[in-house]
């Protein structure tokens, strides 16, 4: 049971990083990025390929951050005139493009077979159980650091400027804020975090394939951020752990409801996820930890 909890918490941590990434871009500056899983995939593949070529794992992770950030830059610069639904559609398309490239460029990504045997750092030294604990600590520490940084950002003048852009882009521009600059920076940082999450995921699972990066992940993360509280980093983190916890918890319900056959139950699980989202949105639309707008310090 303990080993399973450690495993689920590690996955929860990776989802929390994705939620922080999404919260920065969606809750922070108001850009809807439906292509989150694409940046996640880029990071995973970048690190898998770099370490596969013989580089140390830390280089792989650094590479994933850089690749994610560059991809984020390209996306924002290519879509400067798009907002809202239009941007959402473009980013959704982008994630599918990334997945299809991974599926088709067999020389690079090994196509649908995926890349297996990705280095698991220190696994031989620590053993299975030791490695899982080490990785949980590592992922949790990364979540903590990223959360602290983003929380600081959220409360700084920079964060207030982002939120001003989110609320009214024209007004923010009129007030002398460089709207495009903020958007590009926020998108690049957000994509870099998603890339890092991908790299952490790849080395934890030691296997990635295009099947891993279905749009469903993006939906889960949107669910996490919406349930946790849009616009507040702690909300996204909490939401991600709650989503993973909820998904895993539902596995144990058949023990309570023995009347359902396992196959029937599998279908019911999906219904439960949908019902939970509806309930959250109906009764707590601001999320579990609503956004806080702190008064600006008097200077």
């Amino acid at each position: 049971m303990l080993a399973y909890l450690i495993f689920a918490l590690t996955i929860g941590g990776i989802y929390a990083l994705l939620a922080l990434s999404l919260n920065l871009i969606w809750g922070g500056i108001g850009l809807v990025n439906l292509g989150l899983v694409g940046f996640f995939a880029l990071g995973a593949y970048a690190s898998a390929l770099l370490t596969g070529a013989g580089l140390p794992v830390l280089f792989g992770w650094g590479g994933a951050i850089i690749v994610g950030a560059i991809a984020g830059l390209i996306v924002t610069l290519a879509t400067t005139r798009l907002r809202d639904d239009y941007l959402a559609i473009v980013t959704l398309g982008l994630a599918e493009v990334i997945r299809l490239v991974a599926l088709n460029e067999r020389w690079l990504t090994n196509g649908s077979d995926g890349i297996s045997g990705i280095q698991a750092p220190l696994k031989s030294a620590l053993g299975n159980q030791g490695f899982n604990i080490f990785y949980l600590v590592l992922v949790s520490a990364v979540v903590l650091v990223v959360w602290l940084v983003l929380r600081r950002l959220d409360r700084s003048p920079y964060g207030r400027a982002m939120k001003a852009i989110r609320e009214d882009q024209e007004l923010a521009g009129f007030a002398g804020k460089n709207v495009l600059g903020f958007k590009v920076q926020a998108f690049a940082v957000s994509a870099a975090i998603a890339g890092l999450a991908g790299a952490l995921y790849a080395h934890f699972q030691s296997y990635v394939s295009p099947d891993h990066f279905q749009p469903l992940i993006t939906i889960y993360i949107f669910l996490a951020v919406a349930a946790g509280g849009v616009g507040r980093p702690a909300g996204g983190v909490l939401g991600a752990y709650v989503v993973v916890f909820f998904l895993e918890l539902t596995r144990f319900l058949p023990d309570l409801v023995p009347a359902l056959a396992p196959a029937q139950f599998a279908a019911c699980r999906e219904i439960l996820v949908g019902v939970a989202l509806i309930l959250v949105l109906r009764f707590r639309p601001q999320g579990l930890l609503p956004e806080q707008i702190l008064p600006a310090p008097k200077s």
């Binding site: 049971m1 399973y4 077979d113 995926g114 699972q205 394939s209 099947d211």
Partner: peptide, 30 residues
Amino acid sequence: VLAAKKLIEVNKVQAVLGTWSSGVSLAVVP
């Protein structure tokens, strides 16, 4: 992968039977 981990760690199963698609099998086999 999460489902397999639950079977292995919580239910302590001695074998896992019946993974279907290649992507799933390759992900579970580690």
